[in-house]
Design a protein around this nucleic acid. Structure first.
Lengths: 138, 138
DNA sequence: TGTTTATGGTTTATATATGAAACAAAGGAG
DNA sequence: CTCCTTTGTTTCATATATAAACCATAAACA
């Protein structure tokens, strides 16, 4: 077998490690997610707002992708409302083209974060579910 | 080398295929993303809102994770504002615990989608950047 | 109209997010 | 105080999202 890769040994070592680690592990199951209509439509709307904002700023898909440090294909998926993109990247792109998340500026955002932290501090640390069965057979 | 996996041959075949396919391909570069402060804070706020809403509904992390069809660990990352989660999952969890995205109900959301589509229909299909150099040396 | 460029699809190989399990610690309920 | 459950971590193997490279088409502008 001829290896012409720029990092051939790394690849081989990784492969052998992979085999060694795998020898007695169980296989995980494949996942198919379901999304509510509201979720799908919210993502679709966010993508549409991003696309509209980008065009209003007369920016090319490639330009926005470059600014976000992201590939052109990924940005196109985001604008189509693809559900399986990193939320950080989607939010970053939205910020770049000027789509406000939460309809607030940065200082208001920070105020909301503080309010949420305060509210969380008042709530119980853990949620108790099962009320113990009362033994009253006496 | 001893293989005791439940699907040992599959693993081996996959591995050999991997080596065969890789022999003359370039290695992609590793990606380290940067996020703006606004993006990080927006994700953090959303996670906090989800955690607060979950506790107000007296729901366990495990319960919400089950309803969303997601692992407990992932939900905890979402509530911590992790940027590298699928946006669909984050939005789904938000919907489950009652955090409104875009601060609108479903019908209003659909109205906004229609408005965005209308706006997009009016905008040019593609953004032209370079104005051709005018040849007027006559 | 012709030409150039943007967009929208592919495909392929990696990088990495996710699920699962195990563990410790802590916080409520009794 | 004493359980028992929830939470918060960690590790690891796979499933899958992403980058990169194509090609085809469409659309803007001279």
């Amino acid at each position: 077998m001829e290896i012409r890769n720029s990092r051939p040994l790394d690849s081989l070592y990784t492969t052998f490690d992979y085999i060694a680690r795998n020898k007695d592990k169980a296989m995980p199951k494949s996942i198919t997610r379901t999304y509510s209509r509201y979720t799908r439509e919210a993502c679709s709307l966010l993508g549409g707002l991003i696309r509209a904002a980008r065009k209003e700023h007369k920016l090319t898909v490639q330009e926005v992708a470059d600014r976000a440090g992201v590939s052109r294909g990924l940005l196109q998926r985001i604008e189509k409302g693809d559900l399986k993109c990193e939320i950080g990247v989607v939010f970053e792109v939205a910020t770049i083209v000027g789509v406000q998340l939460f309809d607030t500026d940065e200082s208001t955002l920070r105020k909301h974060i503080r309010q949420t932290e305060d509210k969380l501090a008042l709530l119980p640390k853990s949620v108790r579910k099962k009320t113990r069965v009362v033994h009253d057979e006496f």
